[in-house]
Design a protein around this nucleic acid. Structure first.
Length: 436
RNA sequence: UCCUCAGUAGCUCAAUUGGCAGAGCAUCCGGCUGUUAACCGGAGGGUUGUAGGUUCGAGUCCUACCUGAGGAGCCA
């Protein structure tokens, strides 16, 4: 007896097979029962005719409750003309074994009807089973696989950066503080400083891991814990890493569009805007961005960072991601290299996703001058002793280098067309949610 | 931190001017041989987020608090 995955069911047409899974949907009609099974690879309808199985099996099937776990054996066959069922094949059941029947007194809480977001987030551990969430996390898997593959194939070395850190990368107000024996530690908000050390050892490196920001942000684009991939390239300029970012995004899109047809269909994602995206992406200086925004009615003033509405407005002018570079130094982190031609702007850049999804990448060229960095650390009121090791990188074989960070959930939210990044991660952490 | 909104059955929501708390789904019982969020008949299910106040009378009005959602600032 072949034990099969639902995804492969069509290859077993005409044969007897066994599927193990969970009951997604249940309908009965006197002498016929329809079960829709879910096994993690797909959905398949099983049909139970009273005359074709033992009375015990029929009764068991009739009493099954949503999300009960079970093992079903039967003949796989094409769905009859004029009928429909998920996947195009169905199973005529000959035997059924209940692994666990969900008790009716405490039924599975997520019915196929509508639910509110608070309830669904409380039930996140069960919500993952629904087809929409399943599709999103499959896309996330492909985005991550494409990202790692992209860097691995270009000679990058994966170097993991620590999660406990002694100090902030970019200021202390957004750090989670945790006790660390007799001292304090902070959860990392970026692996970048460590990546710079690794770049001096390996040339081209990337880190990929969770990142923590204690920002009290409550918007569709924020999580307190999110995953970030951060490449750092020795001897690269701002322009080099913009080209790298462009290639990365293109490769992720091409892999998802190639591998996730059914998932994007489940999500009702419009494919046109994704298919149109191809290099080169437009590159705008911050100055150009501000003047475009002003001409479109924004109240932005030179010197401040782009707000969410500004990002959306700007991105709407183009049909592909927009790269905005050379922001005012004041609005950026201490380690950004000033433009030698215009010291008031930094060799930094953000990549804004289309369709209002906003910033998905931020990065730039790193400052190399030891004196400049010491001065900036002081200006930002950062604890100088915590950065001594970092300054060593300028003392021993100083080198120009550039890199960026890309937020995985924002990319997934954009590609999937989600309204909120919280659906782009299995167990979201937001300002007011720590469970499940 | 600030602004806005919400909280009524397990879930999604109603409840007129302050006047008997109700429906669909889910659950239980019964019916139905191709269902598609199946359908048809019946049943059970409530301290209206918490505490106070106004009133003959509060789900509804007032105050505080709690919980959550949307947004701003900030960010990936």
């Amino acid at each position: 007896m072949a034990e099969i995955a639902i995804r492969d069911a069509a290859h077993h047409e005409g044969n007897s097979a066994t599927v193990r899974g969970w009951l997604y949907h249940h309908r009965s009609s006197g002498r016929i029962i329809f079960l829709v099974l879910r096994d993690g690879t797909g959905l398949m309808q099983a049909i139970i005719l009273r005359n074709a199985v033992s009375p015990d099996v029929f009764q068991q099937a009739k009493d099954l409750t949503q999300e009960s776990s079970l093992e079903v054996t039967g003949i796989v066959r094409r769905v009859p003309e004029g009928k429909t069922a998920p996947g195009g094949v169905e199973m005529e059941v000959t035997d059924l074994k209940t692994i666990q029947r969900v008790p009716a007194e405490r039924p599975f809480p997520i019915s196929p009807k509508e639910h509110g977001i608070e309830f669904l987030l409380d039930q996140r551990h069960l919500w993952l089973r629904s087809s929409r969430q399943h599709a999103i996390l499959k896309v996330r898997h492909e985005v991550i696989a494409a990202t790692r593959n992209f860097f691995d194939q270009r000679g990058f070395t994966l170097v993991d950066t620590p999660i406990f850190t002694p100090a902030a990368c970019e200021g202390t107000t957004t750090l989670f503080e945790v006790p660390y024996f007799d001292e304090k530690a902070y959860l990392t908000q970026s692996g970048q400083l460590y990546n710079e050390a690794a770049a001096a050892a390996f040339g081209k490196v990337y880190s990929f891991g969770p990142t923590f920001r204690a920002e009290k942000s409550k918007t569709r684009r924020h999580l307190t814990e999110f995953w970030m991939v951060e490449p750092e390239v020795s001897h690269a300029t701002l322009e080099d890493i913009l080209a790298l970012a462009e290639d990365l995004i293109s490769e992720i899109l091409s892999r998802v569009l190639g591998n996730c047809d059914s998932q994007l269909a489940t999500l009702n994602r419009e494919l046109g805007p994704l298919r149109r995206i191809a290099p080169p992406f437009p590159r705008l200086t911050y100055d150009e961005a501000v003047s475009i925004l002003k001409s479109k009615g924004s109240t932005i003033e030179w010197g401040s960072d782009l707000g969410g509405a500004d990002e959306t407005l700007l991105a709407r002018q183009f049909d592909r991601p927009v790269m905005v570079h050379r922001y005012p130094s004041e609005a950026k982190a201490f380690y950004m290299e000033p433009d030698p031609n215009r010291p008031e702007v930094a060799l930094s850049a953000d990549v804004l996703a289309p369709e209002g999804y906003g910033e998905i990448i931020g990065g730039g060229q790193r400052a190399t001058s030891l004196d400049f960095l010491c001065q900036r650390i002081q200006e930002h009121r950062l604890p100088a002793e915590a950065f001594e090791w970092y300054l060593d990188l300028r003392r021993y074989g100083n080198f120009p280098h550039s890199g960026f960070g890309m937020g995985i959930e924002r990319v997934v939210a954009w590609i999937c067309g989600l309204e909120h990044v919280r659906e782009a991660i299995p167990f979201p952490r937001t300002i007011y949610r720590l469970t499940p």
